[in-house]
Structures are given as C-alpha cells and as structure tokens.
Nucleic acid binder design. Sequence first.
RNA 1: GGAGAGGUGGCUGAGUGGUCGAAAGCGGCGGUCUUGAAAACCGUUGAAGGGUUUAUUCCUUCCGGGGGUUCGAAUCCCUCCCUCUCCGCCA
Length: 425
Amino acid sequence: MLDPKVFRQKINDLQEKLKLRNFTIDLDWLQALEAERKILQSQTQALQNERNVLSKQIGQKKAKGENTEDSLAKGEKIAKALQEKEEALKSLQKKLWDFQTTVPNLPHVSVPPGKNPLDNLEVRKWKEPPLFPFEPLDHIALGKRLHGIDFDQATRIAGSRFVILNGPVAELHRALTNWMLDVHTKEHGYTEVYVPYLVNENSLFGTGQLPKFESELFKIERDPPYYLIPTAEVPVTNLVRERILEAEALPLKWVSHTPCFRSEAGSYGKDLHGMIRQHQFEKVELVQVVRPEHSYKILEELTSHAETILKKLELPYRVIALCGGDLGFAAAKTYDLEVWLPSQKIYREISSCSNFESFQARRLEARWRETPSAKPDYVHTLNGSGLAVGRTLIALMENYQDQNGNIAIPAVLHPYMKGITHIEK
RNA sequence: GGAGAGGUGGCUGAGUGGUCGAAAGCGGCGGUCUUGAAAACCGUUGAAGGGUUUAUUCCUUCCGGGGGUUCGAAUCCCUCCCUCUCCGCCA
C-alpha cells in the first residue's frame, strides 16, 4: 500500500497520479475523515496521558499508605470518557485503513499513459514470426492428434478449465520446468526455493491479492482459512515479511516452481477453449528483493532473464510496457512478454514482470538498513514469470510443428528429454 | 488426534497488578588504552504513530493475535493462533 502520509499531505498529487490508472478517490470524503481523525486522536491521546499520570500517582500514594479514594473516582471518570473516544477512533481508523488498503500503487513516470490494453506500448520485438507453408494447427488439435493433451478426461475428473497431459507431452512439460529452473539458477544467479502451495490470509494481504481480489482465489474453508496460491509470488515474496534485512543481504534473488490456482471468476467466455486459461497451471517464478535505488535497473534485468528463456527456445516474442490503465493493483511498472501463437496469429502473454517498489514491502513490513544502526527503510520487491510453463508448452508445440502435426523439440531441451528429438504420433 | 511445556527487544533470557519500554548477558555503535588490532574498561543502543515545529520538544501505542477485569495489565480471566517435547497415525 501507499505511504499513509500521502493521504494526509499530498492529496491532490495523489489524485492526479491515480487518474493515470483510472482510479478516482472522493477527496472531500477523505479529507473530512482525516480532519475528524486528527481531532479524535489528539483527544484520545490526551485522555490516555491523564490516565497514565493519575495511575502512577495512585501507585505512589498506595506505596506511602495515603488515601486514594478521590483519585480512584477521578480515574473511573477518565476511563469511561476514554473508552468512548477509543472506540470512536478505532472505528474511524478502520474506515481509513479499509480505504487505504484498496488504493492501487502509483504508476512510475515511465509508464505509458492510457486507459486499456490498446494503449500498451510495444518496447521491442524479437524474431520474425515464422511463415508456415501449411496451415498451422492449434495446440488443441496438435495435442489431440498426439494423444498428449486431453480436456475431456480432465472435465470428467475435475471440471472445466483443467487439463491432462499424457506421455511425451507431459514429459516435455516437466522438461521445460526443469530446464527453466536450471537456466535461472546456473546462469542468472537465482536461488531455488520450494514453498507452500497453501498460504494464510496475511501472506495474500502482503502481496496485495487480499482484501480486494478474493474472488480470484480458491479458498479452503477452515478456521482460519487457507488459500491456494495464485502464483509463487505470494509465498516467495512473503519470505521477507516482518524482517529487517542487512544491506549485504540484498539483493535477494529467488526462483521457484509451483502450481498456480486461479478461480478466474468473471472471465467466463474468455479463452474458453484450450490451455490458455486454466484453474491450475505451472509457473517458474522469479522474485527479487532489492535496495530502492536499484529497482528499475533490476526490473530491466529481471525482464531480460525471462526473455532469455524465449530466446533460447527461439520463440518469437515482443515486450510490452503496460499503460497506466492496464497496470495490476500492486505494480508501479510492468512489462509483459508476449509469445507468438501461429494458430491464432497473435502474440499472447507468457510472462509479466513488475516492479512493486515499496507497495508490497509496506504491507509486508519488509525492511532493510544500510548499517546496523541506521533507520530501517522499506525494500523494493519485483517479480516476473520465467515463464508460465503451460503457455510455453503451447507456444513450443505450435511453433515447432511440421506439416504432419509432429513436433520438433528444441535442442536446449534434448538433455532433459532423454534424447528424444521429436514427438510423433 | 491425546498429554504436557512455552511464545518478552537484533539474539539469549529475567520479570505474576503500580516510577516496566521492560533486569542481565550477547551482538551493534561511540570512546579510553594501543604503532595497529584484540582483550579490558566506560558510555550508548528497539519499532510504529500523532501533535508542534524544522529543529527541538511533547505525547501515544507496542511483551504471539483478539477480547475482558481494573484507576492502572508483560503480569489476572476468556478465546484464537503458533512453536517445542512425548504418545498415536502417516508419505
């Protein structure tokens, strides 16, 4: 979340910046609430002070054996008045908190202006989309032909938006995962972490999924509830929750492979067919925790790490800078990587790399300090998919198909596929 | 799942109703000593928030979370969470 001070001091500034992402706040309402808070808080604190002073006096009198009847009566009065003020203040502060925790992050100055995905800016493109001398099949048809992808069985077992992979295609899916993890750990300096797939509410609050986006999550009803992670970002970023990190510990670079679970409520009709949008999918996620002054340099670096995967697979892609209106709730700046899908003749999102600045850190209480005696400050957090495995599988199948519907396996994956070079019927 | 123990500052750990934001030790920082360092000694050392100001001062809150009793709670009561030990079960 944002620094609470901006709601008190730089309110017009705030309004301007939030407009860039289609978010408006009721200034009059907020300022009235703030004014009330100020008065109420001062009164409450004054009463607390009176109570503390008096209580101390009573203690001293009792020690000396003096009469305390008058003081006790006075104390009772204060306690009563104080209780009223405290309750009023508490409910007011809850109102402010509820509001503040649902205000999105502010876009970085370099974020392109715009309202919707059409205003996103193409930053660069890599490799021309291939020209097929035949009509390329989509992954659904390819998967069916090779008995590698089965949606019907998945529907029977679980329901819609699930998939079953079979034989060499399942192996390719696993090979991709292992290979990506190796590239990031061996070539990019990330440390692999294995994390819980069920998390508590605090973790989801920390990274910004709660309280606003509960409908997109799968919840396990118990007391307290668990949630299935929508991305490894949640458990991994929460590794720094409520910690004060020493300067030499930064940057922290983690890579984690997890399944991701999304209920995608409200998205019905979108990508209804195929593996594009599933309730369960695999992702290799990159997370970095860095000093604030480095975070934009790191965003470029982290994005390039995700790009490396596409380059090594020789898949055509482009990099998009999301405009203000398309930015996710917690992000200050985001690059999407979009891979070419020959069957649809469009680029589809396969990775999203974001700098959250201190937005998540403030929710997480994740801080660092220059020296052990220095004042702690919030870290900056970043993450990006490196990459979404299911979508990579699709892109690979579609881009590497031949006219018979067989699939060549890119050379970098051969060592991960027991030497298999093609998937054939 | 059953039985027991426990959650206190960066760490270890004392504290069962009143000057406790909290002893002591370790660690950190500053200093004395030293050519330098170590040791020793002395001093110092939590976070968040608010008011007033811009450089000082004042105040509040925080001893796992929430609630209660009381003039006053780290300390008493209720409740939840978590950790550890033993037993049971289990990959």
